[in-house]
Simulated assay, not measured.
Amino acid sequence: MSVRELVVLGTSSAVPTPRRNHNGYFLRFDTHGILLDPGEGTQLQMRRAGVTAHDLTRILITHFHGDHCLGLPGVIQRIARDRACQPIHAAYPADGAAYWHRLRNATAFDDTTDIREQPLTGESADLGGDPGITVQARALAHRIPCYGYRIAEPDGWSLRPEALARHGITGPAAGELKRRGEVTTPAGERVALHQCAVRRPGQAVAFVLDTAPCAAAEELARDADLLVIEATYLHAHHHLAAAYGHLTAAQAGAIATRAGAHHLVLTHFSERYDTDDDSRFAAEAATAFGGPVTVATDLCRVALPARRR
């Protein structure tokens, strides 16, 4: 049975706290295991969450501020130590290639050749290497080069039983119709897939971390089933958000609304906030977004919403 869920490994911004580890997100999407922004302590958080090196198929780095990448040495060394032989594509801003190589070679260990680097340049990129899904990157508005990511499956089809019955299509013929796009019935009628099915939107997850409000954030989040987005500050500190290229919870909610996202996951919180502030983040986001809001906590799991039909 396929599993589609977000495992949150860390939710703090620049400074980890006793309650919040540095950033870290693992998206399990069927056979794909995507690790995004492994901050300091990610290897331990993976163990606590039951995520192994063998689960990883891709690493995505938004940018090279420490809270988004200081866990890379431990994760890469774990991949090599555990002999996780599957190819692992790793995307990161090309402008930060020097940081990538320093982190990858931070200590003495037997490196692995199974990590396939994909340095990103320009405003957007479509990343290959993942059968059954697409991975897109878009440049965000931060103080240093930073990318957001969108993971999506192609749209599919849902067969309509009444239409199949009307055309006399039963049993294996229905599967052939879905697979090939058309079928010839025993009566000699040629039936196309669109005559017996409706489009089913593929599921999509967007990651928007470390950015000021920008069009690219909304493009990534467009109609996303799950939008994982930074909410570093509450509105009371909106001047800090503007100064440092971050979002408030209300701004995150507004992006979700304009993009038509379906479930909002807030994360990347300043160390100035504590447990009592969680409800304030949810409330501020809800002033701009009417859908479900999750204020992420370390090691929480968020299942993708049910498929839309």
Rank of each mutant, 00 (worst) to 15 (best):
H239P: 00
P145E: 10
H32F: 09
A187K: 13
A106T: 05
I115Y: 10
G39H: 10
L220Q: 04
E219C: 11
I255R: 02
L70R: 14
A254E: 15
V3F: 06
Q251L: 08
T184M: 10
L304V: 09
E123Y: 05
V293L: 02
G96K: 05
V191C: 03
A84C: 14
A98K: 11
T232V: 06
C196R: 03
T113S: 13
R81C: 04
Q43Y: 10
A91P: 12
E40W: 10
A224R: 03
L226G: 05
P161H: 08
R222W: 07
F281M: 10
A303W: 02
G129T: 06
D126M: 11
D274R: 15
L9C: 12
T185Y: 05
G129A: 09
R116E: 12
T185I: 08
Y99H: 13
A256N: 09
P305M: 01
L304Y: 08
G175I: 01
A97G: 07
W100N: 02
S158V: 12
H22T: 12
Q203T: 12
A217T: 01
T134Y: 00
Y147K: 03
L56C: 09
D277M: 07
A174H: 01
C214W: 03
D210F: 07
D298T: 14
P145C: 08
S158N: 10
A14V: 10
V228P: 07
R200G: 06
T257R: 15
S279Q: 13
C214P: 11
F281T: 08
L70N: 13
F269D: 04
G129R: 08
T294M: 00
R307I: 02
L266R: 06
L220F: 05
G188M: 04
R78P: 00
N105S: 13
C300K: 02
P292M: 03
